[in-house]
């Protein structure tokens, strides 16, 4: 256990603070006045029934969507509109609900794209793939190999990802996000569509990422058993509103949450 983990999650240092965020598309209100925080080193789950606004929330955090109201404070800096490129620069990495890999490229190249922002040599050297550009390419290749070892995907290093089974694609996508050495890792349903064994593997990787790299993780997941085991704190959304926020045990016994999942008439 790392030092950060010994503190109670709620008292750790603030990394991301979402305050009164509302997002609508035309007349559809996807998120209504939601506030919650993510603290350094914790695993924070966002759960809720279908259409609750979970993915929209992740999209707001990394700047794909711009909320109409509210502020997002990341590493002490407040803003309403994040831009994806800026989010990536500041250490926010993510995976997608429907795997978004570069299908034509190999596993290795996919993960290498995660190093884009870490590579500094200019266009000039790249024109000739020579001098600093080549040295740099090799250094980053080493980093990527470490991630490949960590995720146990050595065997598919050179395989175009379009040909991989779904479970492995999800793992490669996690690898690409890890290659960015993120401070905050957003995982959108990392275990959707997986069988039990794949889910166990993925859970192990998520816990290892948290404990070995100290990465803060915010994840969306449907499998309640997994969520309750993995996460330090859980926020529950329903119809775009926050209905509960707390430790897995608190959330489990919350009447609103039970109603939302069992479908009581609103």
């Amino acid at each position: 256990m790392s030092a950060a983990e010994q503190l109670a999650p709620a008292s750790r240092e603030l990394l991301l603070n979402i305050e009164n965020v509302s997002l609508s598309f035309g007349g559809v209100k996807a998120i209504r006045d939601v506030s919650f925080d993510v603290r350094k080193g914790e695993i924070r789950a966002i759960i809720g029934p279908n259409g609750a606004g979970k993915t929209s929330m992740l999209n707001v955090i990394n700047g794909f969507y711009h909320p109409q109201e509210g502020t997002i404070t990341y590493r002490g800096e407040s803003r309403r509109d994040m831009r994806p490129h800026i989010a990536a620069t500041q250490g926010i990495a993510r995976t997608f609900q429907n795997v978004a890999l570069f299908r034509g490229m190999t596993t290795l190249d996919n993960i290498m794209t995660g190093r884009t922002l870490k590579m500094k040599t200019g266009l000039f050297w790249h024109l000739f793939r020579w001098g600093p550009a080549e040295t740099e390419e090799l250094e980053h290749r080493e980093q990527v190999e470490r991630i490949i070892d960590f995720l146990e995907i050595q065997a598919i290093r050179k395989t175009p990802v379009g040909r991989l089974p779904y479970g492995l694609q999800k793992r490669v996508e996690l690898g690409r996000a890890l290659a960015m050495e993120p401070e905050l890792l957003l995982l959108d349903e990392p275990m959707a569509g997986m069988n039990l064994e794949e889910k166990e593997d993925m859970s192990r990787f998520i816990l290892d990422v948290s404990s070995q790299f100290g990465t803060t993780i915010a994840l969306i997941e449907h499998d309640m058993g997994v969520v309750m085991d993995l996460s330090d704190r859980v926020v529950v959304l329903d119809y775009g509103q926050k209905i509960a926020d707390g430790t897995p045990d608190e959330v489990k016994s919350n009447q609103d949450v039970i109603d939302a999942y069992l479908g009581v008439a609103h």
């Binding site: 990394n62 794909f64 994806p84 490129h85 990536a88 620069t89 990495a93 993510r94 997608f96 978004a100 890999l101 570069f102 299908r103 034509g104 490229m105 190249d109 290498m112 794209t113 995660g114 190093r115 884009t116 922002l117 590579m119 040599t121 266009l123 790249h126 793939r129 550009a133 390419e137 690409r176 996000a177 960015m180």
Partner: peptide, 25 residues
């Protein structure tokens, strides 16, 4: 085919959103 910028180009060609998420402009 062999450089970071080339890889970024192919990434953009494959998936705009994913390319943005790894910080490709």
């Amino acid at each position: 085919n062999k450089t970071r910028i080339g890889r970024a180009l192919r990434a953009v060609a494959d998936d705009h959103q994913a390319a943005l998420s790894v910080g490709i402009s």
